[in-house]
Simulated scan of single mutants.
Amino acid sequence: MKFVSRAQWRARPSRYPLTYIRSTRGVKIHYEGTAVPASLARPENHTRCAGRVRDLQASHLANQAEDYSDLAYNAIVCPHGYVYEGRGAHKKTGANGTAALNSAHYAVCAMLGNTGLTTPTDAQLDGLRDAIEWLRTSGGAGKEIRGHRDGYPTACPGGPLYAWVQRGAPRPGGSKPQPPRQFEPFPGAAWFKTNPRSPIVTAMGRRLVAEGCSAYAQGPGPQWTDADRASFRKFQHKLGDAPEHCDGWPGPRQWAALKVPKL
């Protein structure tokens, strides 16, 4: 997954504390619903995408009628397949239409409009699937994949994208089932105290960033540092562990919950 954290796209802070949700029935797919330039899909124009996410957040924060806490979506996917962290996992969305709908499903928005760029690229469809899988593994999302219009009177997510949702939201290039995801085995509690330098540390750090538990000023990287320990401590608190188990040193149960992809 080509993941872009809130820090990386320079998100503004939320206006109010975001509501924690343990799990959802699934994910609802959205589009912007306004004009999106067709030229945005060109490879050289990916540099515009982070700015577009910032603009979307600014417009939501300025919407006095809705009084949004933050960007309404849990994630946004650009035409180049990058997944931009919005509210993130375990955060109630503000995009589905009502409080009950917002609690039932996460919201993932594609950078598509009702004019200009209206048909998703293959890279974008891959990114949407990546966002769905991320919310399943990191946010407790269920198996349902729906469109915004399912349960709320709206044209969102537009005809082309909704047709993809109705087909079961397949990845481009075939409908072969994906193999079960493999996770990195726990390297042992003592291993982390040896000041390791390993790709496992980088992979762990990226998962901590995806979980919203980053204490990194830069990175993460392969060398275990105090920032890794501080980030893991945040994850332990997120899991609701007792204070004596929130020391920043990974344990086997906590490691299993983090689900570090197998290298």
Rank of each mutant, 00 (worst) to 15 (best):
K2P: 14
S14T: 11
G142F: 12
G86V: 00
P185A: 02
G113Q: 09
S5Q: 11
A141D: 03
R197G: 10
R129V: 11
P261G: 12
Q236R: 14
S23V: 05
R181P: 01
V36H: 05
P43L: 01
G33T: 09
G94M: 06
A230R: 14
L112M: 12
K28Y: 08
R25P: 08
W224S: 14
A11Q: 00
R167K: 11
A203K: 12
P222D: 15
V108E: 01
A107C: 09
P43H: 00
G168V: 11
A11G: 02
T154A: 08
R229Y: 10
G127E: 01
N195L: 06
A99E: 15
I132S: 02
T24M: 06
S59W: 12
A257D: 14
A75W: 01
L258N: 11
G205W: 03
R171T: 08
M1L: 13
A190T: 11
S5M: 09
E144F: 00
F192S: 03
I132F: 08
L161E: 08
R42L: 15
L101D: 14
R233M: 14
L128N: 02
R146Y: 04
L135T: 01
L117P: 06
A7W: 10
K91T: 08
S214P: 10
H60Q: 12
Y84Q: 01
A210P: 04
G158F: 02
N45A: 11
A217M: 07
I21R: 12
A38W: 09
I132N: 02
Y84R: 00
A58V: 03
L128M: 06
Y16T: 01
T115K: 13
L18R: 13
S14E: 15
R233C: 13
C246M: 06
P250D: 15
R171K: 12
Q124P: 11
E184F: 04
G212F: 08
A256W: 12
F192Y: 07
A58E: 13
R146P: 06
Y216Q: 03
W224T: 13
T93P: 07
F192M: 01
R87N: 09
D150L: 01
S59L: 13
G240M: 05
M204D: 03
E133R: 07
I29D: 04
Q124N: 11
P222W: 07
A107D: 01
D150S: 06
A72Y: 04
R167G: 07
G158D: 05
V83N: 03
